[in-house]
């Protein structure tokens, strides 16, 4: 017979840890966000909404939101679209496609911090392989592209050190890292598209592959897409490794890559402004919660096929 209190032993540790590690920190952050707390400070004062006011009014935080949204709004759609495109192509190629799947998944496995350091070297203005590759295209019809021609005459950009390019370059690396993961999720989604639907669509006159994609594949991938979009959004909101590797202090040229996780780290850990950091944490959690709840809502009201 099951012991009467067996469940307490089974649930207990998990329950205590959930409360201590997931719930309590949120309460702590919420409490601290109304103070000017710092570790080792003698006195902590209640400052009301000052931290939040600072976040929504100071220029540096305006830059933070700018950088974060730029990053997220590039990485999420592009890596989802590339993931879907790659999945469709890989899927249609059968067994040969497997090799691309393996290659595209490599960035997901490799420690991002290591690859960020390699990218920095690859994008190095003098030693980097990227600008050297671009330079080999000079003199070819590529020069018809004004941007390219300018690069050939004046030198190609200092990608990570130019404030016009910095956040987009970081976003490019984010896409490089993320799209293989999305591809694999879409490949899993594609296996569950009922074959009969394609035949049915053909009977109904959907002959072109675009028509079949629009009428069958895309709707059937709906639930996958909702999931892929949400997880990509949440992950890209959390970008930190690349930014910290490239810009250990300050968040990039003119703070153009001052993303939110880095701001939390800088304010809270480097500058010991834990009250402010806690307020940033609450705002960040707000974004993540909204995204996840939106996903659940979409999944629940979605019409399934």
């Amino acid at each position: 017979m099951p012991g009467r209190y067996a469940h307490l032993w089974f649930i207990g540790p998990a329950l205590v840890l959930m409360l201590a590690i997931l719930v309590l920190p949120i309460l702590v952050a919420f409490g601290l966000s109304f103070t000017d707390y710092g570790l080792g400070n003698g006195q902590t004062d209640f400052v009301g909404l000052d931290n939040y006011t600072a976040i929504f009014h100071k220029r540096s935080f305006a830059k933070m939101f700018g950088a974060t949204f730029r990053y997220v709004l590039v990485v999420a759609p592009v890596s989802v679209a590339l993931g879907l495109g790659a999945a469709l192509m890989v899927n249609s190629l059968g067994r040969i496609g497997e090799i691309y799947k393996t290659i595209y998944f490599l960035p997901v496995m490799a420690a991002l911090i290591a690859m960020a350091i390699v990218w920095e070297l690859a994008l190095h203005p003098e030693l980097g392989v990227v600008n050297r590759l671009l330079a080999t295209g000079c003199g070819s019809p590529l020069e018809l592209w004004p941007w390219y021609a300018q690069g050939c005459t004046d030198g190609f950009p200092f990608w990570l050190n130019d404030k016009r390019y910095a956040i987009w370059t970081v976003a490019f690396i984010g896409v490089w890292q993320a799209f293989g993961f999305n591809m694999v999720l879409y490949l899993a989604g594609l296996t569950s598209v009922p074959r009969d639907l394609y035949h049915a669509a053909e009977m109904d006159g959907a002959m072109s592959s675009w028509e079949r994609f629009r009428l069958v594949t895309w709707p059937a991938l709906g639930p996958t897409t909702v999931f892929v979009v949400t997880i990509t959004l949440i992950r890209s909101f959390q970008v930190f490794d690349t930014v910290e590797a490239f810009y250990p202090t300050g968040g990039g040229p003119s703070k153009s890559a001052y993303v939110m996780m880095f701001a939390i780290y800088e304010k809270g850990i480097q500058q010991n402004l834990l009250g402010l950091g806690a307020a940033l944490t609450m705002v960040f959690l707000g974004f993540v919660m909204i995204l996840t709840l939106a996903q659940r809502w979409l999944v629940e009201r979605r019409v399934h096929y």
């Binding site: 997931l22 993540v288 709840l293």
Partner: peptide, 30 residues
């Protein structure tokens, strides 16, 4: 197992799925 509060605990698990641990790193650090 059936026990009192099972749904509440499972609710807490579902709530926990909403929270990326990196996002609450700062209070955890404190």
């Amino acid at each position: 197992l059936r026990f009192w509060g099972r749904e509440a605990v499972f609710g807490l698990v579902l709530f926990g799925l909403l929270i990326p641990v990196h996002a609450i790193a700062l209070p955890l650090y404190v």
